[in-house]
């Protein structure tokens, strides 16, 4: 009888926000499902990709990266509407699994690798080697705690607290915009 509830994205829209700036495109990714996973003493390590502290791993459509010294985040594209945590928990008996899908807002930045790397210089204080493809890091971005994931050379995933998605979008979009203008000015010099 009850009509299902209609979700809104972290930026408050009914559809994900997408915006292109020169060589780079920003997209809100509300389709991404997240669950944290921390092995407990009684359990054993599940058969999931569980990479080292600086890495981003993928197997069977499940991405994974470390969140703490003892825990990982499991990420899947296109599965936000599932009870993702319950499915991961079923795969990981004896692990503490917590739903995190709506704890985070993901902004994807795609485009030229060189432009992405220039963008990262303006966002996070990390050696670029830590953000090469296949790497993940948690750090501060404009005073916001964020995960920075690099699934591919031309692809960057930024995960920030859902509640500050607007501030995160602003920070990234503005940095991209400044880069585009500066490059155009340099070209004229």
């Amino acid at each position: 009888m009850a009509e299902p509830l209609i979700p809104v994205t972290a930026l408050g829209g009914t559809a994900p926000k997408v915006q292109g700036f020169g060589p780079l495109t920003l997209s809100e990714r509300p389709d991404v499902a997240l669950a944290s996973l921390a092995p407990l003493r009684a359990g054993q390590l599940p058969d999931l990709p569980l990479p080292g502290p600086k890495d981003l791993a993928e197997a069977g459509g499940l991405w994974s990266f470390r969140t703490t010294a003892e825990a990982w985040m499991i990420l899947a594209e296109g599965r936000a509407e599932e009870d993702f945590a319950a499915r991961i928990a079923a795969l990981a008996p004896g692990c503490a699994v917590t739903e995190q899908t709506d704890g985070w807002a993901m902004i994807e930045v795609t485009g030229e690798a060189a432009a992405l790397e220039r963008l990262l210089e303006k966002l996070v204080n990390l050696d670029p080697a830590l953000l090469a493809p296949g790497h993940a890091a948690r750090t501060a971005l404009h005073h916001m705690g964020c995960f920075v994931l690099r699934p591919g050379a031309g692809q960057l995933w930024l995960l920030g607290m859902r509640s500050s998605a607007g501030s995160l979008w602003h920070a990234v979009a503005q940095a991209v915009q400044f880069q585009v203008v500066t490059l155009a000015e340099r070209a004229q010099d």
């Binding site: 502290p53 969140t67 703490t68 948690r138």
Partner: peptide, 15 residues
């Protein structure tokens, strides 16, 4: 001089 002190990686891995 030499001091052993606690630091929390708040904007990192929470160690």
């Amino acid at each position: 001089g030499v001091h052993r002190e606690l630091w929390y990686h708040e904007q990192g891995d929470r160690s």
